[in-house]
């Protein structure tokens, strides 16, 4: 249940970011064509990309979609699989715990600075995405852990599974298009 709502919220937020980013780029082209370029365009769009990166990475973590190499693990015997699985989860969680901790520490230093083209926007706001999304990453990793654990125990190759899913979607669309 929690998982469902976290996923929906992240989805809606990041989808809005992507729509926003697209609109900014298109607006910039339009404004330049009418001789009044948006001066904050590239700085704001770059920050938008960073937010999309980090919050989108949370969504990808929830869907376990990050690029990896599951082949060896899924083909090794269960007694080897389990400790390696736990170890790799621990590495992921500790990495983002560190990023969240130090990301929070540097906020104090960032409070000095603002965007160059929009001096009213503080860097504390723009770079808050790092500690917040790092914390969310841990949450998403934990929320998707039970599903990943089951698949690991069953020896599912997740890359193979992703490929099957892509083909299923394509075939489904093909049928829809023919109908």
């Amino acid at each position: 249940m929690t998982r469902f709502w976290v996923e929906k919220l992240l989805e809606i937020f990041t989808v809005c970011l992507l729509i926003g980013l697209t609109s900014i780029v298109l607006a910039a082209v339009l404004f330049r064509a009418f001789d009044s370029s948006l001066i904050w365009y590239d700085e704001v769009a770059s920050v938008g990309l960073a937010w999309l990166t980090f919050y989108g990475a949370n969504l990808a973590a929830l869907k376990r979609a990050h690029m990896g190499f599951p082949g060896i693990i899924s083909h090794s015997p269960l007694p080897i699989r389990i400790p390696l699985f736990i170890f790799s989860e621990l590495i992921v969680i500790s990495f983002f715990a560190l990023v969240a901790y130090y990301g929070y520490q540097v906020m104090e230093i960032l409070a000095w600075d603002a965007l160059v083209s929009l001096p009213s926007v503080s860097l504390t706001l723009t770079q808050s995405a790092v500690p917040i999304s790092a914390s969310l990453f841990i949450l998403c990793e934990l929320l998707s852990l039970p599903g990943a654990w089951k698949k690991m125990c069953a020896g599912v190759d997740t890359e193979h599974e992703a490929i099957e899913e892509a083909i299923r979607l394509a075939e489904e669309e093909l049928k829809e298009a023919k109908a």
Binding site: L21, V25, V47, L49, A50, T53, L98, Y102, Q127, A134
Partner: peptide, 23 residues
């Protein structure tokens, strides 16, 4: 120097030409 890590992560992702990727 671990404090550089969040800054570098953010800086790495704010690369203007890469906005072409999501689009």
């Amino acid at each position: 120097h671990l404090m550089n890590i969040p800054l570098t992560l953010f800086n790495g992702a704010t690369n203007f030409p890469l906005i072409a990727i999501p689009l």
